[in-house]
Design a protein around this nucleic acid. Structure first.
Lengths: 120, 120
DNA sequence: ACCAGATATATCTATATGAGATATAGCTGT
DNA sequence: ACAGCTATATCTCATATAGATATATCTGGT
């Protein structure tokens, strides 16, 4: 799939599904990888589960692309040294917003075409 | 990404992006491949364009999965023998609906997390 | 009738993404 | 000390998409 003649922040759209889930999970709090996994499962009512392979390779890609950053310090009260915390960058938030807008249009498209969703 | 413990019609969710676009394009009319391409471009305001590689390989997959069927006869008035027309099956429509519902939940998720889309 | 260009389908290779398995180490409670 | 959960990481394989290319058919102009 291609998206336009792209001189803009839409370059990386559409986002892979796992990527979008991770950005959403980070949109309201800094989290470590495993917490992202749990958060996605919870928010989707268990319907979508990231597996480790997808999760960590996607995290690495997001770091390279500058959509998220790793924090130096753990939040106060957390001394589990294994955890690595990540935060959405302004750029990452921007991309997530654009993707949400795109998905939103997609949904509108489907509805107008007569594909009313069962619920929601 | 995985979707549950699947004894149901959600087996094939989440749909690849191109797949969903094709199903939507077929949801209100029978069309041939090239027409699907144009339809998707038009419905998305030119923002999403299927290229031939993606289009035809996806069509073959959809035929195998029984989500669409190829029509024997061309619509009256069309004598372009190159065209191959496709129609959404009841099963295909069901899957498209489920996918729409899933996307719809995704959008709701993003909104609640504070990612308000710019427009729409 | 001829030709150019658009229409239409198809296939090939390469890359990106995701699933699933496996590994390893640090925590927590008993 | 041990079991089991938490947490990150990596490997291999399958699938999905992009992009290039090929080829045939149709349409309009001359």
């Amino acid at each position: 799939m291609s998206s336009r003649s792209d001189p803009s922040p839409d370059d990386q759209l559409p986002l892979p599904a796992a990527t979008f889930h991770i950005l959403v999970a980070l949109s309201d709090a800094d989290r470590h990888g495993y917490a992202i996994m749990l958060e996605v499962a919870e928010r989707t009512g268990g319907r979508t589960k990231l597996n480790p392979g997808t999760l960590y390779t996607t995290i690495h890609r997001l770091l390279e692309q500058g959509l998220i950053v790793e924090l130096d310090a753990r939040p106060a009260g957390d001394d589990d040294q294994r955890r690595r915390y990540y935060r959405l960058t302004p750029c990452g938030r921007q991309v997530a917003k654009r993707e949400l807008a795109r998905l939103s249009e997609l949904v509108a498209l489907g509805r107008h075409a007569g594909l009313a969703p069962k619920r929601s």
